[in-house]
Write a protein that binds this DNA or RNA. Sequence first.
DNA 1: CGTGTCTTTGAGGCAACTCAACACTCGTGG
DNA 2: CCACGAGTGTTGAGTTGCCTCAAAGACACG
Lengths: 246, 246
Amino acid sequence: MAQEQAATSGRSYRDPCGVCLDCAVRRQAVCAALEDHELGALQAIMVSTRIGAQQTVVEEGQPRRRVFTLTSGMLRLYTMLPDGRRQITAFLLPGDYLGLGDESSYDQTAEAVVDSVLCGFPVAEMDRLMERYPRLQLRLNQMTRIALRQARDSQLILGRLAPVEKLASFLLVLSERQAESGEPESPVHLAMTRTDIADYLGLTIETVSRSFTKLRLQGLIQLPEAHQVEIIDRRALTAVAGITPR
Amino acid sequence: MAQEQAATSGRSYRDPCGVCLDCAVRRQAVCAALEDHELGALQAIMVSTRIGAQQTVVEEGQPRRRVFTLTSGMLRLYTMLPDGRRQITAFLLPGDYLGLGDESSYDQTAEAVVDSVLCGFPVAEMDRLMERYPRLQLRLNQMTRIALRQARDSQLILGRLAPVEKLASFLLVLSERQAESGEPESPVHLAMTRTDIADYLGLTIETVSRSFTKLRLQGLIQLPEAHQVEIIDRRALTAVAGITPR
DNA sequence: CGTGTCTTTGAGGCAACTCAACACTCGTGG
DNA sequence: CCACGAGTGTTGAGTTGCCTCAAAGACACG
């Protein structure tokens, strides 16, 4: 396992050039709740952080002092059992918020899947800001509700779908999220490894690999590279998934 | 399947005698956020509803017009696949709130496991009340965060635990929740059927039954009745569960 | 060019599922 | 009072499919 190598944080700094106004996730993240002229207040408490792939952002059990918006890259959120079994509960994409479910301490570990950039906010100052701008609070609640729905979708996938169905629905969700970010639906880019996918879907890497092969042999997808999935027959893939992705 | 028999609501009425002040879940439910003298506002929009076992409270897809606090009994929240496979994502106990994750329409079906009593609130009036009492809003957000954490715990259980481990952790969680309600920890009362447990843990009823037998033969539990579980060796049961319940 | 990581594929075993039968409880009605 | 049927839970036998173990290919990096 490579991700145990480092728990160090990346370099932090007041972002010199990238202002919130020009941010790539300005319309997706928490900040979407604020008007342009209100952004300064958020930017004043914001610290931009770059983090390398496989590095830990926050660790389960640590005091929850900062919350984050992911602006680029990808994070995995996971819980680990004493014997090493791991369950990834979510992949965070740009615009997503880190710290939604946590109370006084983080209850899951967050690691960067690839090099990522985060906006960090001190919890205390964020709380003050939410009192000042109630819409910020409302937006955060909405994002928590969305996360809850996603977690419950995941429960269905983990509990009742067969391996191929799990993978099909996973690919469709990724495809949808790519589309939401303005990228094309079809060549789905898998930033995570097969191990990550397995630990997200409750499978072994071998079963994940075999499921990819099955979908490929059925002509539903193509795999030009291991991390590039071309969706050939979306309708059939949806049928295999058993569920209509939200 | 018996639960398809009825989608009718129980009788609704302004509760004549039971006032919020004397409510059994006054300190656990949303209303815990309000002072005694503020309760009247909540009670004014509240409609108490009795619902029989197996009856549907809200159905997936319906417009979310009312939200509820469960005051007695038990609900199951579930999603169903077109082919009949079912995943129960949560069991709601007295004090729990129904409608946390939903936006404009319910995204899961809620059914009564046993005869239950609910406090119903029109969404529009509840929203107005939350503006008037910000603490109500905060409390609801906190409950959503708790639900999110529970859903993520469930993801771990579904994705990475073996059947016996799943059942052990399920029993421990129920035991804990009983204790929170002031009841004894040990004879855990299982209001739901084996089918419900199976659909919650991602197993078949036979595997659930065999797992009960395994725990019993190992001397960790006793089963005087099918719905009564005496926890004999809590430490060993926790070890089997693999996780420390929150 | 060797080393390490990641992915895929193959072979075999075991555990959970499927199918089936039986025990038990609880109503209902003869 | 007992026979009967429906619903629920347990147990057994057999099968399927996922996991385990193993190996080889692909690729990046030093």
